[in-house]
């Protein structure tokens, strides 16, 4: 049985529309026009125990709404959802004691207290047995390199330090499921790598199921075997990162470097399934469809024309893939 089972989940918010200007504000006092916003428009998915799933989509697509419903702090308008056999918003207290949640935009630590006191407080709130707590705490402190930060009040931490502390805090009670909502937002490269390494190890060594939302496609490429794309409240794609690429555009780019520009200029790259992308001094970039023309055949043809000193194949960057998918569904930020 999947750990998370979501069927037909929908969430509609009612928002009051304000008419512009003073007259509009005045009219709003007596009569408010309500508008329905469909944040989620019936989504379905399963997540198996131990999966590490990326969840992406433009701002306002419904990512955070999904996470909030799965975490039990928001009720859906319709649809069902089972997490480890529980309905999050009905069995809230039991459910939240088994999951960990990190919101990159906001800390869940006690702002004015030192990190270690927040940890101790969480031990009491989650009723973690002392021995389990000591094990988890010491392991997390070592893994996230938190030792020097323990006595610092949370408000004095840098964003990267805060994020590491927040991640540790979400795992003190040993949850088997972790929701990460934009955990790398605003972080520098080193901090991002630390967070990624940590999440990967957590998933691999401890079999913690992770659902991760992000705008950073490097997070997805570095971590996720599976990615779900949401837009306008619907799941648009769900599968492997490679599958997503293939679905949008099955194209790779062969980059060929020659010793001189004149050699590069002589290369002819035309034919079935091949397209010249650019010719720049001694470098030539050729786009090809590997299903119509296998890479080996293409390379064979090139070698017959001359001897390049280097050649390699590029994947299209996932950003481009995702942007094209968004464009295909005419998604804009709402």
């Amino acid at each position: 049985m999947p750990q998370i089972e979501v069927r037909g989940l929908a969430k509609t918010f009612r928002v009051a529309e304000r008419l512009p200007g003073l007259a509009g504000a005045f009219r709003g006092l007596f009569h408010r026009r309500m508008r329905d916003v469909h944040a989620l428009d019936g989504i379905d998915f399963d997540i198996e125990r131990g999966e590490l799933v990326g969840y992406i989509g433009p701002n306002g697509a419904g990512k955070s709404t999904t996470i909030k419903i799965l975490a039990g702090i928001l009720n859906p308008t319709s649809g069902t959802c089972r997490v480890d056999g529980l309905t999050p918003w009905r069995d809230r207290r039991r459910h939240v004691s088994r999951i960990g949640v990190v919101f990159g935009q906001r800390t869940q630590l006690w702002w004015d207290l030192p990190v270690i006191e927040s940890f101790d407080l969480l031990r009491d709130i989650y009723r973690v047995p002392p021995a389990t707590y000591r094990d988890n705490r010491d392991r997390l402190i070592a893994l996230m390199d938190l030792e020097p930060l323990l006595d610092v009040p949370v408000r004095q931490l840098s964003l990267g330090q805060r994020m590491r502390s927040d991640l540790a805090a979400a795992l003190l009670h040993g949850p088997s499921l972790l929701f990460l909502d934009e955990p790398t937002i605003g972080l520098d490269a080193v901090s991002k790598l630390a967070i990624r390494d940590f999440v990967r190890e957590l998933n691999r060594d401890r079999q913690v199921t992770v659902l991760l939302t992000t705008h950073d496609m490097d997070d997805i490429e570095a971590l996720c075997d599976r990615v779900m794309v949401i837009g306008n409240g619907r799941i648009l794609a769900d599968g492997s990162v490679d599958g997503l690429r293939r679905r949008v555009r099955n194209e790779r780019v062969l980059v060929v470097d020659y010793d001189s520009a004149s050699e590069a200029a002589m290369l002819a790259a035309e034919g079935e399934g091949v397209r010249l992308v650019e010719r720049d001094a001694s470098r030539v970039r050729i786009a090809f469809d590997p299903e119509r023309l296998p890479a080996a055949t293409l390379i064979g043809k090139l070698l017959a024309q001359g001897t390049p000193h280097d050649l390699f194949i590029e994947h299209p960057p996932i950003e481009q893939t995702v942007a094209e998918l968004y464009a295909e569904h005419d998604m804009r930020e709402r």
């Binding site: 909030k68 975490a71 039990g72 702090i73 928001l74 809230r92 207290r93 039991r94 939240v96 004691s97 949640v101 919101f103 906001r106 869940q108 709130i125 989650y126 009723r127």
Partner: peptide, 12 residues
């Protein structure tokens, strides 16, 4: 609006 996150704690 962050008050909703208090519901993440397994407490009454």
């Amino acid at each position: 609006g962050t008050v909703a996150y208090d519901l993440l704690r397994p407490l009454d």
